[in-house]
Design a protein around this nucleic acid. Sequence first.
DNA 1: TATTGTGAACCTGTTCACAGCA
DNA 2: TGCTGTGAACAGGTTCACAATA
Lengths: 224, 224
Amino acid sequence: MSARTPDTARDIPEATVARLPVYLRALIVLADAGTATCSSEELAAAAGVNSAKLRKDLSYLGSYGTRGVGYDVEYLRYQIAREIGVTQDWPVVIVGIGNLGHALANYSGFRSRGFRVVALLDADPARHEEVVAGLDVRSFDDLEGIVEEHDVSIGVIATPAVAAQDVADRMVAAGITSVLNFAPIVLSVPEGVDVRKVDLSIELQILAYHEQRKAVTARAEDAS
Amino acid sequence: MSARTPDTARDIPEATVARLPVYLRALIVLADAGTATCSSEELAAAAGVNSAKLRKDLSYLGSYGTRGVGYDVEYLRYQIAREIGVTQDWPVVIVGIGNLGHALANYSGFRSRGFRVVALLDADPARHEEVVAGLDVRSFDDLEGIVEEHDVSIGVIATPAVAAQDVADRMVAAGITSVLNFAPIVLSVPEGVDVRKVDLSIELQILAYHEQRKAVTARAEDAS
DNA sequence: TATTGTGAACCTGTTCACAGCA
DNA sequence: TGCTGTGAACAGGTTCACAATA
């Protein structure tokens, strides 16, 4: 039975998992620039981390470098893509086609980085006329059919906060097990379902906190 | 000289800082629902963390609760808003008014959570005709004047990756010291400038990694 | 010789469990 | 009595520094 267990079954720390996509992005830039080989120092610089951290992270995947030489850009790129699971495209549905949903539907980065938007859904019938990014905006009631048809396991929520929990519940019931949530609300989902959230205001507030402290520190230094 | 040093000068762990906006959001929901008082257990549930972590986080700010009772919602809300620095609005400029820039300009959450978009800038003259969210889209060359006029210290970059570093350099030169970057590229900025990044594809890739492992685990269990 | 891969030390963040207090 | 605030134990993540090796 272990014959089916792939060699990617190692346990990779969460912090490392969150950085693998950054390394992959950096490798793609290097590959596009025609670079065949890079040292941990170079790759780390391109990814915005220090080289010790990069090497430690890569060591969880295996020994893909060559001592005294560095890493083969294409080879490492493939290994990381395989580890993340983006060697084939993942079908994705986006629910909530307001301003943000529009932007997400049109975002070319999804297509080029391992994702394919298969449907855009909105609860508002007034939006069902529209074609966005080459896709018809469809009724939210089509969710179950689309998930089944395309075997979708990742859903994106770009609705207002009040609708988000209902959307999440329907997604989970339909078989979706990973959710990217842009609504400013904490979703509750059953065990086994992953949720990641992006809250634009929270990011700005974190900056504001540090900005405020800069001002405070500057004033304190002025005074002394 | 220490008379000017406010009592917010304590050193708050970064992980705590990142959660304060979440607590603030939860408190606003509770306040809007008419809740006057809440326990650490209730607030933690609303914020999606455990109560021990919440209490520990709040303890870095001070002792704002009452033993045996809980927290006064309005009082704690104000204290956290003050700590973050969002009791007054921060002026913000957005550069890059494509799909995402449009969505950000129209995002009501900024206005309601301590930020005011004072200008929209784009390098493409074809976009300077447009009015988005009630603001004229202006030339990127107006950056310096706007930063000075409105005393802007926070900038948002929503340009394509190729333009982002140039935009960041101009922002820093103009006096901006905090940047929220949506372009999929690592920005290099001088000491003292904060950058936070949001990369939509990276979030999806992290979900994909876990999704892939679910499939692997399920197969391994089937086989045994 | 140059650079990787990694144990060990260190540091940060989380959880426990209970003392302190309204 | 009930809930906060917090030391102490624990877990996870980062950095150091060097042995392994192409």
